[in-house]
C-alpha cells in the first residue's frame, strides 16, 4: 500500500526524528527506556529548581555578621527562631494568608457568574465583549494596572472627582488593606475566569435543562448541579488565585502605601534593603512551606480527585 509520508501526523514525524536521534547517540538502543528520555527536559528543569532550593536552604541556615557583612561559616537555626518570634513577620504572614483567602473567595464569587454568562450566553456579541474585556487587562501588566488604580482611586482621581460633584470630601481610597485586596481581585479575575470557563463548558446545557424539568429552580440548579460539577474548575482556579495572591509583591507595594507588606515584600526587604540574604532565604522557604500547606489542605478537604487528576474520570 502506497502512503506518502506527508500523510503522517506531524507529531509522529517529530517522534520518529527524536527516536532516530536517540539511536544515533546511543546505538545499542535504550529499548524500553527510550520513552523516558523524552522526560529529560522536564527533569532538567525541575532539577534546576531543586538545586536552587538547596542553595536557598543552605543560605537560610547562615546568619549575617553585620561587622563584615559575610555569612556565618556554620549552620544555625537562628533565622528560623527569628522568623517565628518576630511579631512583624507574624503580622505579615497573617496579612498575606488572610488576604489570599479573602481574594480567592471574592474572586471566585465574581469569576463564576462572569464565566457562566460568557459560556452560556446565546448572544455572540455579548460573549465577544466579555472575552475582550477579560483579555484586555491581561495585556497590561500588573504594575501598570496598579498604577492605573492609583490614578483612578487617588485623592484627585476620577472616583473622588465624581464624589466631589455630589459634595463628598475626598476619601482615602488607597494605601490600605482593602485597596490591596481590591487590586488583587481585579488582577486575579481573568485567571479565575479562564480556568473556570472550560469547566463550565464541560457541563452540558442539557444537564441544567434536566435539573429544571426535575423540579429544580434556577438557584437550586446552580447549587445542586452546576456548582458541584464545576468543582474541579473552582478548585483549580482557587488554587491558582490563592497561591498567586499569597506570593504577590506588586499590589501590596504599590496600593498598600508601604503599610501593607505581604511576605514577598518582606523577602525583598531582606534581600535588597538590609542585605540579609540568610533571613530572606528563611522567609522564602517559609512562604513555600505555607503555600504547599495550603494546597495540601485544599487537597485534603476536597480530595485530589476533584482536579480530575486520579485518571478515573471518563
Amino acid at each position: 500500500m502506497q502512503r506518502s509520508p506527508s500523510s503522517y501526523p506531524l507529531m509522529w514525524r517529530v517522534m520518529d526524528a527524536l527516536e532516530a536521534a536517540f539511536a544515533a547517540i546511543w546505538p545499542k538502543g535504550g529499548g524500553k527506556y527510550t520513552p523516558y528520555l523524552m522526560l529529560t527536559p522536564a527533569i532538567v528543569l525541575v532539577g534546576t529548581l531543586v538545586v536552587g532550593l538547596l542553595y536557598i536552604g543552605d543560605s537560610s541556615l547562615r546568619t549575617l555578621d553585620k561587622s563584615t557583612f559575610q555569612f556565618s561559616e556554620f549552620w544555625t537555626l537562628e533565622n528560623y527562631v527569628r522568623a517565628f518570634s518576630e511579631p512583624f513577620i507574624f503580622t505579615v504572614v497573617w496579612r498575606s494568608l488572610m488576604g489570599a483567602v479573602i481574594v480567592t473567595i471574592v474572586t471566585l464569587m465574581l469569576a463564576f457568574p462572569y464565566a457562566y454568562v460568557m459560556v452560556r450566553t446565546p448572544n455572540a456579541f455579548l460573549r465577544k465583549f466579555l472575552l475582550i474585556a477579560l483579555f484586555l487587562p491581561f495585556f497590561i501588566g500588573q504594575v501598570v494596572r496598579a498604577y492605573g488604580w492609583l490614578i483612578i482611586l487617588g485623592n484627585q482621581g476620577i472616583v473622588n472627582d465624581v464624589l466631589g460633584l455630589v459634595g463628598v470630601e475626598p476619601l482615602r481610597l488607597l494605601f490600605n488593606y482593602p485597596a490591596v485586596l481590591f487590586g488583587l481581585v481585579q488582577y486575579m479575575l481573568p485567571f479565575a475566569v479562564l480556568m473556570l470557563a472550560p469547566a463550565l463548558t464541560a457541563i452540558p446545557e442539557e444537564i441544567e435543562a434536566a435539573a429544571g424539568s426535575l423540579g429544580a429552580s434556577w438557584v437550586e440548579t446552580m447549587t445542586h448541579v452546576v456548582l458541584p460539577m464545576a468543582k474541579p474548575g473552582l478548585i483549580g482556579a482557587g488554587l491558582v488565585v490563592l497561591t498567586l495572591s499569597l506570593t504577590d509583591f506588586a499590589m501590596p507595594a504599590i496600593l498598600g502605601g508601604g503599610t501593607q507588606d505581604f511576605i514577598a515584600n518582606a523577602i525583598y526587604d531582606q534581600f535588597f534593603r538590609t542585605s540579609d540574604q540568610g533571613f530572606g532565604a528563611t522567609l522564602a522557604l517559609l512562604l513555600i512551606a505555607l503555600g504547599s500547606m495550603l494546597v495540601g489542605v485544599v487537597f485534603a478537604v476536597f480530595g485530589a480527585g476533584t482536579l480530575a487528576l486520579d485518571g478515573s474520570q471518563k
Binding site: 561587622s67 511579631p87 512583624f88 503580622t91 505579615v92 501593607q260
Partner: peptide, 16 residues
C-alpha cells in the same frame, strides 16, 4: 550594624 533592626522595629510599629 543596626539598620535592619531599626527598619524592622519601624515596620512592626507602622504595620502592626
Amino acid at each position: 550594624e543596626n539598620e535592619s533592626e531599626w527598619f524592622s522595629k519601624f515596620k512592626t510599629i507602622m504595620q502592626g
